[in-house]
Each structure stands twice: as C-alpha cells, then as structure tokens.
Amino acid sequence: MIKVQREEFDVGAELSALSRGNHNIGGIASFVGVVRDIGADGGSGAMTLEHYPGMTERKLVEIETEALARWPLDAVLIIHRYGRLEPGEQIVLVIAASAHRAAALEGCQFLIDWLKTQAPFWKFEETADGGKWVDARSGDELATARWDAADDRHR
C-alpha cells in the first residue's frame, strides 16, 4: 500500500493495521526516516519536501511491485510525507511483512534504498540566509546499484 501525505503518521498503529488478521505473517521489518537537525548555516533545521504529484505515486507503486516480485512478502506499506517538516519529525515509513524474517528485512532495505533514488522528492533546507536545495548523494545511487549487482549474481 502507498500513501503520499502531508500529515504525520503513527508507526505503531500502521504496524498493527498491516498485520491485523493475517496470521501467515511471521516477521515485520520497518524503517522510519526522521528529520535530523544538521544545524547547517544557522538555519532552523526545518526542511520542505517537494514532490511530483502523480509520478511519485507511480514510482512508489513500481517499487512496491518490484519488492513483491523479489521476495515472498505478505504485506508492504510505504508512507512518504511532503511539505514543511521540523527536526525530529518523521518523513518516511517503510514496512515489509513476511512469513520469515530474511524476506521482511531484505525487502524493507530494498524498498528504502530504491525509494531514495527513484521517488521524485527534493529537499529544501532552511538556512540563516534563506535556504538551499539538498544535493543528491552518490552513496544513495551506490545503495541501489548494490541490489542490481545482487541480481547479476543470482542470474
């Protein structure tokens, strides 16, 4: 399931809701992304997340579909927020549930790695002199490439 929203989310409630009634699930792995106060340039530490409505949902569904094809997952949830976020606020939640822990843990990591390089979101950090757009990190593309390399090994 995919949700793109401005509002905050409750991790506990989402975890319970995802597995409720499905007794095939033996393990649930989750990742929560939080706004870290980097205190750069004397700014407030807050950021604004811009996205491409329409394409965002499309890419998240693609990423979910890909994870479901690669691992025997019983349930997947991706919640991604947009808009202005203060330090300490949650940005993203990824949950993968499966009969076994390996699929849940690997599926969860795959989802967040792919999401970071595929989903059209951009961060604007508030600084003392106004603000700046955050550059993409090559480390994120390497994390995605790791999964591609894993595919090659399996072939």
Partner: peptide
C-alpha cells in the same frame, strides 16, 4: 515533460 535535479527523498540524514 518534467525537468528536475537528482532526487533527494526518503530520509532526514542527508547533509
């Protein structure tokens, strides 16, 4: 047609 910089979504620990 959409033009944009490389994406930076997903988490708060960028920077």
């Amino acid at each position: 047609v959409a033009l944009f910089p490389p994406v930076t979504g997903g988490r708060g620990d960028v920077g």
